[in-house]
Computed example of a mutant assay.
Amino acid sequence: MVKVIPMEKKHINKVYEIEKLCFSMPWSKESLRKEIEENDLAYYILVLDGDDIAGYAGMWIILDEGHITNIAVHPKFRGKGFGELLVNSLIKECKKRKLTSITLEVRKSNTIAINLYTKFGFKNKGVRKRYYEDTGEDAIIMWKYI
């Protein structure tokens, strides 16, 4: 059974494992812990496939905007629609909170993610030059107005 639930401190170790599998510059366990326990702006969710954490997503709620910080799906769960479920769940939360827009940065080379966001109505609104420290790659800034 697939379901979306709030992320809690007890999930950090497994989420950190997903971070390491998905990103060249993963967030640390401590960063994840601070997001869950200390950041009043943070909203994080998990998608579960049975008892397994298939992926997670997070955003910061800043005034009337959502800023997506992370979306990751464990490699063994890709291609099953979990990324779509996570993005859709974040958009629903924005609507519930009556936010006006949602934004994110994505690597210019990450066409799979760009296509996913475009499917949900995100538009390319600019570039952050050399945004990613590990490669110096540019980030595409995407926005969706709600």
Rank of each mutant, 00 (worst) to 15 (best):
E30Y: 14
P75R: 09
E19D: 01
V4G: 06
K92L: 15
I36L: 00
I5S: 03
G83N: 04
N124H: 14
A57Q: 05
I18W: 02
K14C: 03
K95I: 07
I62R: 04
E8C: 10
E38F: 13
E84M: 12
I12H: 00
S31T: 15
I61S: 11
K119P: 06
K10L: 10
E133W: 14
I45D: 09
I102N: 08
V106N: 04
A139C: 07
I36V: 04
N110E: 00
L63E: 10
K29I: 14
T100K: 15
S101K: 09
E93D: 09
K123W: 11
E8D: 09
E30D: 15
A72N: 01
N88Q: 12
T69I: 10
D49S: 11
I146E: 12
D64N: 03
S109F: 02
A139G: 02
G136Y: 08
T103F: 13
Y145I: 14
I12Y: 10
Y56E: 07
L99E: 00
L116C: 11
K119R: 07
N115S: 14
S24E: 13
A57G: 14
Y117A: 08
A54D: 06
K20N: 04
V127H: 05
L48W: 00
W27G: 01
Y16G: 02
V87Q: 03
Y132T: 01
G83T: 04
E37L: 13
I61W: 02
A113L: 05
G126F: 01
W27Y: 03
L32N: 02
A113F: 08
S24P: 00
G66P: 01
L90K: 07
K14Q: 14
N13V: 08
E137G: 10
K108H: 10
I112T: 11
I114A: 04
C94W: 01
R107V: 05
M1G: 13
C94M: 13
S28G: 05
L32F: 15
I53H: 02
K9F: 07
L116G: 11
F23T: 04
K10P: 03
N110Q: 04
I45N: 05
K95E: 15
K20G: 03
D138S: 08
D52G: 02
V127G: 06
N70W: 12
A113C: 06
W143N: 11
K34V: 10
G121L: 12
L99H: 04
P75E: 03
L21M: 13
F23M: 01
A42Y: 05
N124I: 10
L90E: 05
E17Q: 03
V15Q: 02
K119F: 02
K80P: 09
K95S: 13
I140L: 12
K123A: 14
E93T: 10
E19S: 02
N88S: 15
V127I: 15
G126Q: 06
L90V: 13
Y132D: 10
G121R: 11
D138F: 13
L63F: 15
T111F: 14
K129Q: 14
